[in-house]
Design a protein around this nucleic acid. Structure first.
Length: 420
RNA sequence: GGAGAGGUGGCAGAGUGGUCGAAUGCGCCGCACUCGAAAUGCGGUAGGCUCGAAAGGGUCUCGGGAGUUCGAAUCUCCCCCUCUCCGCCA
């Protein structure tokens, strides 16, 4: 959520930002509505002031004066109730509109509509060369008895999967490896809920506009698609001591995504599934653009280092205006090389928000000037599984269908090669 | 699931119809003392909206919503949450 004062004072900038994100929002209508809000509020408050003044006189007034005052209050009171009713109705509309105003993308965000317009900013490693026709992860993993999609679908429906044997061990090794790295860097580990109320999703910017991609329970709660939601919500309505900033968290949770609107994409395999697991980096820092940018680059490097430790060829792209979320100022995607698709596929997504989320969640700190300020927030994937297994299995495959184990995972698997 | 107690400022905690946006303590900020610090003393210190150049004013907020009342932190109803005990349980 942006500050209404900021929107009023920077209408053209905010408009340009919405245009860059291809978000349709009528800011002029919002400002007209806000004018009405101010006028109606003033009218209501003037009447309330009158009432308060009369109320203050009452205890010491004699019976006759008292009766006269009470009589004169009747009209003020009914008028006031009418104002209040109108104000309440209007504020619903005002709130709904405010929730749809997108945060402004950074100047360095390229123009574009879809992920096809994202710009590569960094590449690492050589695309894996094979002296044979490489297989895809589905065939490799199924033949090695690491994955059962048939039973997965039978049990869990579309996009269901079972992970088995060394794939499980490998995945647990990855969780441990990544968690250890972040803890060493000073990130505080957390395991956070995936089942949450509405408010954390509004607060992080996934509602109201992303409802169709969320699972909802019969109690009106939701399953989150990322640990970011509950991690951010942990700090909701808090005033953080400035000495605790930057607050760096490494959070683990299950993740659920309905994948509405992506029915024809990645229908086979474990790239796009409804239920997965994620270690997520979250940072809260002081309210400064420079701090946000600094930590954004740090988060990006953290994840690039994970892919480098796994020796996976990858590149980093900066997402274009049409491919970043409502609240995001700027986003990098890290994409690892997937030989069977002859392309890079997203494994990490790294964003910063300025105070868009913290304003909604009311996460503040007291600055050295004594003022309360909304913190800035950022997040990035640290590791998402089982998707990460796709580039690992495919890039490490051998001609006979066996899969070499990345050096850093050998201690966890206790072997160098996964064979049948 | 059953019974009871509770939700108040950055934190702890008092307040049970007007004198309460709210005692007190801690924390924080300023000043004094000190070579400096600690300790101590004195003073200040909730947030949002809004009017105003500013000084300052108005208004709202004591978990959320509705109600009673001229007036609600305080009374009534609904909801949410926390704690204690009992039950059940990975």
């Amino acid at each position: 959520m942006l500050d209404i004062k900021f929107i009023r004072e920077n209408k053209d900038l905010v408009k340009a930002g919405a245009r860059k994100k291809h978000v349709d929002i009528d800011l002029d209508a919002l400002i007209v509505l806000d004018d009405k809000r101010k006028a109606l509020t003033a009218s209501f408050e003037a009447k309330r002031a009158e009432q308060n003044a009369v109320s203050a006189k009452l205890p010491s007034a004699d019976a006759e004066t008292k009766a006269a005052l009470l009589e004169s209050m009747k009209k003020v009171k009914t008028d006031m109730q009418a104002d209040e009713e109108a104000l309440k109705e209007m504020m619903k509309e005002w709130q709904a509109m405010m929730l749809r105003v997108p945060n402004m993308p950074d100047i360095s965000v390229p123009d574009g509509v879809s992920d096809a317009d994202n710009k590569e900013v960094h590449t690492w490693g050589e695309k894996t060369q094979f002296s044979f026709q490489p297989k895809d992860h589905i065939e490799l993993m199924t033949k090695l008895d690491l994955l059962d999609l048939e039973k997965g679908t039978e049990t869990a429906g579309f996009r269901g999967y079972y992970l088995k044997n060394d794939a499980v061990t490998m995945n647990f090794g990855l969780w441990q490896f990544v968690l250890d790295r972040f803890v060493k860097k000073g990130y505080k580990p957390m395991m956070v809920p995936s089942l949450v109320r509405k408010q954390p999703l509004y607060g992080t910017g996934y509602l109201p506009q992303g409802e169709e991609d969320l699972y909802k329970t019969q109690d009106g709660d939701y399953l989150t698609g990322t640990a970011e939601v509950a991690t951010m919500s942990y700090f909701a309505d808090k005033v953080i001591d400035k000495s605790e900033l930057p607050m760096k968290i490494i959070a683990f949770s299950t993740c659920f995504r309905r994948e509405a609107g992506s029915h024809s994409k990645d229908t086979k395999g474990i790239i796009r599934v409804h239920e997965f697991y994620k270690l997520e980096q979250v940072i809260l820092c002081e309210a400064s653009h420079e701090e946000s940018v600094k930590h954004h680059e740090e988060l990006r490097r953290n994840s690039e280092e994970i892919l480098e430790a796994l020796k996976l060829p990858y590149h980093t792209v900066v997402n274009c205006g049409g491919d970043i979320g409502l609240g995001q100022v700027k986003k990098y995607d890290l994409e690892a090389w997937v030989p069977s698709q002859n392309t890079y596929r997203e494994t990490h997504s790294c964003s910063y928000f300025h105070d868009f989320q913290t304003r909604r969640l009311n996460i503040r700190y007291r600055d050295t000037d004594g003022k309360l300020k909304f913190a800035h927030s950022l997040n990035n994937t640290a590791l998402a599984g089982p998707r990460i297994l796709v580039p690992i299995i495919e890039n490490y495959q051998q001609e006979d269908g066996s899969v070499k184990v990345p050096d850093i995972l050998k201690p966890y698997l206790g072997k160098d090669v996964i064979t049948k």
